[in-house]
């Protein structure tokens, strides 16, 4: 008995150490692999300022940005998924399924369509792109909430309306792309599939500046997450006003999603898989679960980018295709398992 309790107590720390090590290894590999191989020990040295000019260019300007944005975007999507799965008490909930990602996509496509001049140059700063993504994400989640109405506590209703809202957003996005100029269409299509290449440090800076306060907010509200395991009445019984808290969490998840996908695009299924796997590894501890989700999200997107770079070189395939190829069956697996539990 005491032995199994000891293992339970060690589960979260051991899991986090393992995930942390895997993330570091993958980040270094993400920089090392490419059209030319840079040995792992040199990767660290170049990041710290050593190495020749070519190596510095490859590492600092070409490879490190895509790895860093993959860490931020993958981690951010995973945090959003963690919050949504927790507060809906449903492992099928994620930014993608609830329509947030497609809402953000629509926001960005409208932004690109409205605010580009005839030469396809943006007439405003690119820094507004996350804002456009956020407006789209908030509009989508608000619509899902309004449609679910009084039954916003029912995860199934939220998921069904989320899927419907996602479909509508996707359709409008498609129409906008079809009627738009060719150049913008390719640009938008890459964005929608989700790709981490062609990211520059300026875009990373914008992402990080928005992401840091969002993550601090997540850590601030994490203390209130445990009672969300309860039904609404019982949660209120122990002092958590769940109907209000749920709205706060949905807004926070929408913000995290928008910040994550603003430049990278709609990378599918990380928000679904990462928090679910984190639960399996870590258990119910919310702080450890949040950290594990972030690490897993980062691992998945850095890994997916590594796969497309190595497997499809020299063609640049969006990393989102890999996460979707793995994620969609995972979603089906969860769906079928849930079905069996309910039946």
């Amino acid at each position: 008995m005491s032995n199994s309790a000891g293992i339970t107590a060690m589960r979260a720390p051991l899991g986090l150490i393992g995930l942390g090590a895997a993330a570091v290894l993958l980040i270094l590999s993400g920089v090392a692999f490419g059209s030319s191989w840079i040995p792992l020990e040199q990767v660290a040295a170049v990041i710290l300022g050593a190495g020749d000019k070519t190596q510095q260019l490859i590492v600092l300007q070409l490879r490190l940005p895509r790895v860093v944005i993959a860490v931020l975007a993958g981690g951010g999507m995973a945090l959003a998924g963690f919050l949504l799965q927790k507060v809906t008490r449903n492992s099928l909930a994620s930014p993608g399924v609830l329509g947030v990602v497609d809402g953000a996509a629509l926001g960005v496509v409208i932004f690109l369509a409205l605010l580009s001049d005839t030469a396809n140059a943006l007439v405003v700063s690119i820094a507004y792109q996350p804002l456009a993504a956020a407006i789209g994400a908030f509009a989508a989640i608000a619509l899902v909430f309004l449609l679910a109405g009084r039954q916003a506590s029912s995860a199934i209703r939220l998921l069904l309306f989320g899927i419907a809202v996602a479909a509508v957003a996707k359709a409008i996005t498609m129409v906008l792309m079809l009627i738009g100029p060719i150049y913008r269409t390719t640009q938008a299509a890459r964005w929608i599939a989700g790709a981490v290449n062609e990211i520059n440090w300026g875009e990373i800076q914008i992402t990080a500046i928005a992401m840091v306060p969002a993550i601090l907010l997540v850590l601030l509200v994490a203390r209130m997450l445990p009672p969300t395991d309860l039904d609404e009445t019982s949660a209120r019984g122990v002092g958590l006003n769940l109907p209000v808290f749920r709205i706060l969490i949905f807004a926070l998840a929408a913000a995290l999603t928008a910040i994550s996908v603003a430049f990278v695009g709609g990378v599918g299924f990380i928000g679904l898989m990462a928090p679910h796997l984190a639960r399996l590894i870590i258990g119910r501890n919310v702080y450890a679960g949040l950290v594990a989700s972030f690490l897993l999200g980062a691992i998945m997107l850095v890994g997916a980018d590594l796969v497309v770079r190595v497997a499809f070189a020299p063609v640049e395939v969006p990393a989102g295709t890999v996460t979707a190829i793995i994620g969609a069956p995972y979603f089906l697996f969860l769906l079928m398992r849930k079905d069996r539990q309910n039946g």
């Binding site: 009672p227 039904d231 009445t233 019982s234 209120r236 019984g237 122990v238 958590l240």
Partner: peptide
């Protein structure tokens, strides 16, 4: 304190984890 009419929590939650939630308002 309140015991709801049909309270629910995830089936894989342990007894101790559930009872612990009663301490939420004190933390």
């Amino acid at each position: 304190g309140l015991l709801a009419q049909s309270p629910s929590a995830p089936e894989d939650m342990t007894v101790e984890e559930l009872v612990r939630l009663g301490r939420y308002p004190h933390q």
